[in-house]
């Protein structure tokens, strides 16, 4: 195993994270805990946070959709001219409030704490991943 790859693995293993029911595994990655805050119907915009770990192949997150928002904006990293957000083999990706991120726009229902709604994530190579958007707080 190349030493650089081994170093990445060791680093990933050291990262603490909570694994729960909101993990979605494909053959090449694991999507952890997509969530947003409890907000009232009509909220113009809110962050959609998640993490993607154990990435085993380069890919790009191109789009996302949920029935509780008119649209989800996919914001690439600064300087990234390709569409979507880059996933790099062996490197965990955190989508939060800054940097590459997802934002819900046009929230059409009150998002109560603890509820969960469908969320589809579209990747260039992995295709669509059916996940859930939980109304929660960080785990």
């Amino acid at each position: 195993m190349p030493s650089r790859f081994a170093a990445c693995l060791a680093f990933a293993a050291l990262l603490p994270f909570a694994a729960g029911a909101h993990d979605y595994t494909t053959g090449k990655m694991k999507v952890l805990h997509p969530w947003t805050d409890p907000v009232p119907a009509g909220t113009a915009s809110a962050p959609l946070r998640l993490r993607i770990v154990e990435i085993q192949a380069d890919d790009r997150l191109l789009a996302a959709e949920t029935p509780v928002a008119a649209r989800i904006e996919v914001i690439p990293a600064a300087g990234d001219s390709e569409p979507g957000i880059a996933l790099v083999n062996g490197r965990d990706l955190k989508l939060g409030d800054e940097g590459p991120r997802l934002r819900l726009h046009g929230i059409n229902t009150q998002l109560f704490f603890g509820r969960e709604y469908p969320l589809n994530l579209h990747f260039a190579k992995a295709g669509m991943v059916e996940a859930g958007l939980i109304i929660s707080d960080p785990e």
């Binding site: 729960g20 029911a21 109560f112 509820r115 969960e116 709604y117 859930g132 939980i134």
Partner: peptide
Amino acid sequence: SDYHSRGSFGPDDVRSTS
């Protein structure tokens, strides 16, 4: 059950999406 929630419904709703 692996009960967490009733998805898009409240905890006392008879329906569930989770």
